[in-house]
Amino acid sequence: MKIRLLILLIFAVNFVTKAQGITITSATSWTVSPLSSANIITKAGKDYAGFETSPANQTLLKLTGTVLCSINIQQVTGANWDSNLKIYARRSGAGTGLAILLGGGSYQLVTTSSTQLFTAALGILLGKEDIPIQYQIQGLSVLLPAKSYSTTIMYTISVVL
């Protein structure tokens, strides 16, 4: 009997620590082409206004899990990106569902290190869907070579408690 309880406990702990999930329920890409009207240079001598902003609900996240989780974000840079272009992200709304979300309302720089964007108190009946994420690309300049740039942003979910 004790062995059974021990096995049950091990599996339960394993479930709680691994059963959280994250899904993107919207489009999985955001491409700025052409630049917005604010960044069209119409007068010689000027540089770009400086940034592009996505729609507020550019990315929609769905979270599942049973505990307090951290939703982290990081940039996976490749050869086709310029380090002068900075990506910022924020949680632009609460989404739907009973889970409680904390933080992430202000733009934060997305770096190549995994950094917490917000936390979510999840439960079996406390899921969360349609959590909107908005992006900004800053650092636009004519000094950058004219071409198409692309990079990958990775979201991860992990247990806090």
């Binding site: 899904t23 993107i24 491409t31 052409p34 990958t152």
Partner: peptide
Amino acid sequence: CCSRAQNVTVGITMPSVAL
């Protein structure tokens, strides 16, 4: 049941300018 990492691709095209 669960995926713990998801990716989004971000792209931008910087045009040629000559003024």
